[in-house]
Every structure is written in C-alpha cells, then in structure tokens.
C-alpha cells in the first residue's frame, strides 16, 4: 500500500513545520523552498497526517 501526498504550492509558504513531522517526505532545499515525495509507503501515513495537522497554511493533504 502507498499513499499519495499533495501540497498546494500556491498556499505553501515554506515554513517547513512538516519537515519535523515527516522528515522522509518533506525537506527544504538549498533555496529554503519545500520539496516533497509525492508517493510514499503506507507506513508514513501517521507522520504525514501529523504534517497535515501542523501545516500553518493547511496546504498538505493525503489523496485517498
């Protein structure tokens, strides 16, 4: 099983709060912009859900 992750980059302000919750999925690049892995193993679900919760812009969702 995999999960699909979508970040609304029009909303994202690159605060990087998600990076601490799901470090395997989200990271800030050298320009401090968010990069993420769009498909992940289901074992990452809890971490990604935590990232969804803490996103200040509420820009992250798990596509079911």
């Amino acid at each position: 099983m995999t999960i699909k992750i979508d970040v609304d980059m029009a909303k994202c302000q690159h605060y990087g709060q998600c990076v601490f919750e799901a470090p395997n999925i989200f990271r800030l690049n050298n320009d401090d912009k968010l990069e993420y892995t769009a498909v992940a193993d289901d074992s990452e679900r809890a971490n990604v859900e935590a990232a969804v919760d803490v996103c200040p812009m509420q820009a992250i969702r798990i596509v079911e």
């Binding site: 690159h14 990087g16 800030l28 050298n30």
Partner: peptide
C-alpha cells in the same frame, strides 16, 4: 527573517 533552514537547525 528568511533563512528557514538555518532557523530550523536550532530547533
């Protein structure tokens, strides 16, 4: 202000 990665490094 800016420098997000650097700020995060101190967390």
């Amino acid at each position: 202000i800016g420098m997000r990665s650097t700020v995060q490094g101190y967390r």
